[in-house]
Every structure is written in structure tokens, then in C-alpha cells.
Simulated assay, not measured.
Amino acid sequence: MEYDLLKIEYVKALKLSGFKTDIQVHITVKLKEAIDAQNLQVKLVSNPKGFNQIDKRWVDKYVEMWNIPVDISTILKRYTGEIKPNILAPKDKRRMFANEFSEKEQSDILLWLNNNQSFIVSDILKGRGQFAAEWMLVTQKTKSDSIWILKPMNFCLNYFGNGIVEMTERGNFKIGKITMQRKGGDGGRNTANMLQYKLNPAELFDIE
């Protein structure tokens, strides 16, 4: 964070919940009246290929956040399973995969994702308001050691979110290095029909 360690008088970390910021660090600098506050998002990874959920909500929550039009929200709800498939013989009777939508629907959803890419990436990674995350701290434990890396959130927004928007071979959507998919799991509970976003924070270890 580019502080002069010799000038730091006191550091206190506060754990938060319900925000993109997991830890808020208060830094008291000698001869400085104000206390700096830095918001950190913490990602714990167990292996180099471990994917990490960065956001999950019901589609209607995203509709409120991003003013998603009805035709796009309907596609997303069929994708997650809130609305059952409207095609014959879907691969999964509970939901539809990206490549099972009509060509027009595929074009519409990809266009909408492209047009709103920056808003989506910022909200699911950084968040908004007083507790928006300013840094990403990634830690990984191995049998013999533990490593960590700290990157500014603006760097992470560009690294993870600035790629192309596309459909994957498995029938999901990707926004740069971020995967958008049906949550699934949850023992068959209806929360499996939520929309989630995932990425691999361990990739930051490979950046020089």
C-alpha cells in the first residue's frame, strides 16, 4: 500500500460481513491527525486451480442493480432454473444451458453482457459505497508454506474483467476471466437456482 513502515504508529483490522470488503484496516500514521482506512477483500485458495465464488444473488436482485430488461431477465431465469426450459428435450430438465437458447436469444444476452460489462464486473468484485473493496488479498496455504499477494482492486477489475464476453463449451457464460453460471448444488433446494460469478484468484500469483 506504499506506506512508510517507520511512520506507522498503529494498525487495527476490523472484520466486516455483508459487504465486498471482508477486512477494513485502520492505519494511524505518526504526526498525522486522520486515520487512514483501507478496505480489503480476502480470498483464501487451497490450490492453484481453485475457483472462488465472488457473487451470488437471485436474478431479480441483479435486475434491480442493473436495470435488466424483461427479455434478458427471462433468459437468465431459464438459465438458472427459476423458469423451466421452454424447449424439447433439454440436457437438464431443471434448466437451460447457454447454447440451448435460440440464436437470437444468444445474441441478445451476449450483446447485453457486452454493453454492461464494466458495471457488472465492478459490482460483483468491488461493490459500491463506503465498504467498496479497494484491495484484493489472496492467500494460499500449502503443506510446507503459505503465500500471499495484495493487488489494488482497480488492477483486479482490469485483469479479471476486461476480456471478451463469450459462451463456454459447457454452456456457461464468461466475462473476461469471470464465469457466470447457475449456482447448483444445495441439496436440491431452490437456492440452487441463483446466479453466481466465479474466478480463480490464484492466477494473481502468476503475474510478475
Rank of each mutant, 00 (worst) to 15 (best):
L44P: 00
L16M: 14
N52S: 14
E208A: 12
I72K: 01
P48R: 08
E64N: 10
D36M: 03
G81P: 08
N52G: 04
L16A: 10
N190Y: 11
T74P: 00
M194R: 15
I27L: 09
V121R: 00
S46L: 11
Q41A: 15
K93I: 12
V25D: 04
K32C: 11
L110E: 05
N162D: 15
C156Y: 02
G185L: 10
N99A: 06
G171D: 07
V121F: 00
I27G: 02
G163E: 04
N52R: 09
I178G: 01
K104G: 07
E2G: 08
C156I: 04
Q41L: 01
F19E: 14
K183F: 13
K177R: 15
A89S: 12
N39P: 05
G171Y: 02
T28C: 09
I75Y: 01
N39A: 09
I120K: 00
D186W: 11
M1F: 12
R78T: 04
V138E: 04
T139H: 06
L16V: 11
I124W: 04
A89M: 11
W135R: 06
T21D: 08
D186G: 05
G185Q: 09
I27A: 07
G187F: 12
L111R: 01
E203P: 05
V63S: 01
Q117K: 15
G161Y: 02
Q106V: 06
F160L: 03
A133E: 07
N99V: 05
V25S: 05
G163K: 10
K174L: 09
R182A: 13
